[in-house]
C-alpha cells in the first residue's frame, strides 16, 4: 500500500498540490487521471522520490520515502518518468540490464541476466535487443524503458504517462501486460493516464485530480460518472458501457 498524508507541493512558488491525503491499494492497478496541470504527474513523481517532498509524508509498502535510503527504495518500487532521452549510446539490452542495478550494484549474476531476458521477452523486444537506443522509434524506446522498470522486479511499479508515443495496439498491449502483472504476479501498479478511457478499461482504482486536489477516488464505476467527469474536465461528458466496463464518450 502507498499512503500519502497531507502532501502539498509548489514549483517556483506556484502551488501544484494542496494537502493530498489518500491511499493506493496494493495488488491493484491504480490510475491517476485529470486534466492538464492537475498535478497527477507531480504526485507520481513525489511518490517515486523524483522530486523532493516539500510537505507531508509518503510511505510505500511501509517505507517512508523521506527517511528510507534511496537504494533500498529502488528494491521496493520502480518509477519511470516522462523524460527518457539518454546521453549514452546504449543497446536496448544494455539499457534493460540496468534495471537490475539496484540488486547487484555493478556485478550482475546469472539470476540478474535471466530477469533481463524475461523483461525483454515480456515486452516483445527480442528483435530489437541489439539495436542502439538512438536508432529506435519513440514508441520502441518507451517500451524499452518500461522493460527496464519491469526488470527491476519491485513490488510497486510507477509509470508517468507510459502511453505517450505508443500507437493503439502497443498502448493496449502495455495496459494488458500491466493488468497481467497485477493479476498473475500480485504486483501493484500506479500509472498516470492522459486518456481516460484506458483507465476505464483497465484500472481497478482511480484517483481523479483537479487543480491540485483529489476530486474523487475509488472503483471505476464509482468515479467515472457523467456528473463527476463533466466537473473534472469542465465539459459535458456522457457515459456508455462496453463489455461490462464504463466507456467515456466525449463527442459533444
Amino acid at each position: 500500500m502507498i499512503e500519502i498524508r497531507a502532501v502539498s507541493h509548489r514549483i517556483a512558488g506556484t502551488p501544484i498540490l494542496h494537502d493530498i491525503t489518500t491511499r493506493l491499494p496494493e495488488g491493484r492497478l491504480t490510475a491517476l487521471i485529470g486534466p492538464n496541470g492537475a498535478g497527477k504527474s507531480t504526485l507520481l513523481r513525489l511518490i517515486g522520490r523524483l522530486e523532493p517532498l516539500q510537505a507531508g509524508r509518503i510511505r510505500v509498502a511501509g517505507h517512508d520515502i523521506a527517511t528510507t535510503p534511496t537504494d533500498r527504495l529502488a528494491q521496493v518500487m520502480a518509477v519511470l518518468g516522462q523524460q527518457t532521452l539518454i546521453a549514452s549510446r546504449l543497446r536496448l539490452a544494455e539499457l534493460v540490464a540496468f534495471g537490475r542495478w539496484p540488486h547487484h550494484k555493478g556485478r550482475p549474476t546469472a539470476a540478474d541476466r535471466a530477469h533481463v531476458a524475461e523483461a525483454i521477452r515480456t515486452f516483445a523486444l527480442d528483435p530489437l535487443a541489439d539495436r542502439f537506443m538512438d536508432e529506435l522509434s519513440g514508441g520502441q524506446a518507451q517500451r524499452a524503458h518500461i522493460a527496464m522498470a519491469f526488470a527491476q522486479d519491485t513490488e510497486w511499479l510507477l509509470l508517468d504517462e507510459p502511453l505517450n508515443n505508443l500507437d493503439m495496439s502497443h498502448a493496449r498491449a502495455l495496459m494488458a501486460r500491466l493488468r497481467a502483472l497485477v493479476d498473475r504476479q500480485g504486483r501493484s501498479v500506479a500509472v498516470v493516464l492522459h486518456e481516460v478511457n484506458y483507465a476505464a478499461a483497465w484500472a481497478d482504482h482511480i484517483i481523479a485530480l483537479k487543480d491540485g486536489s483529489i476530486l474523487a477516488e475509488g472503483a471505476p464505476d464509482a468515479v467515472l460518472t457523467e456528473e463527476l467527469l463533466s466537473r473534472l474536465y469542465d465539459a459535458p461528458i456522457a457515459m456508455g458501457r462496453h463489455q461490462g466496463r464504463p466507456l467515456v464518450l466525449h463527442h459533444a
Partner: peptide, 21 residues
C-alpha cells in the same frame, strides 16, 4: 565507474534505480 554508468541514464532513471543522484 559503475555509478557513472547509471548516472548516464539520466536523473529520473538513476533515482529510480536507487542511485544517490
Amino acid at each position: 565507474s559503475a555509478r557513472l554508468d547509471v548516472l548516464a541514464l539520466g536523473r529520473d532513471a538513476a533515482v529510480s534505480l536507487g542511485l544517490r543522484h
